[in-house]
Amino acid sequence: MSQEKGWKELVPGGIIVEAGNAKEYKTGDWRTEKPEVNLEGCIHCFFCWAYCPDSAVVVDSENGKMVGFNYDYCKGCGICASICPPKVITMIPEES
């Protein structure tokens, strides 16, 4: 908490005056389960990328490849694992 701002430093009314600053709010620690992908079986269909509500699927757009997950923002909802056509994404408990 120590690095967070005190009340005198805040914008009145709790208004957010910087566009796109949700990026600074890392939601990855909300997770109880995390997705892991077995890239050997991945068909790079990008379904996980399209469905991810947090844009937390990392892709190599130049080569058209799914690469992995951005765990700073992945909330562990499991939608990617659920919709993956070849079933190569697995949800595993966070602590393991």
Partner: peptide, 25 residues
């Protein structure tokens, strides 16, 4: 030109400080 957000989610990390600033106002 200056996009802003009113009424965002404000949890245990900042809600209290926002209320304190409202009391001051």
């Amino acid at each position: 030109e200056h996009p802003v957000t009113y009424g965002p989610l404000d949890l245990f990390d900042y809600y209290f400080e926002h209320k304190r600033s409202q009391i001051e106002a």
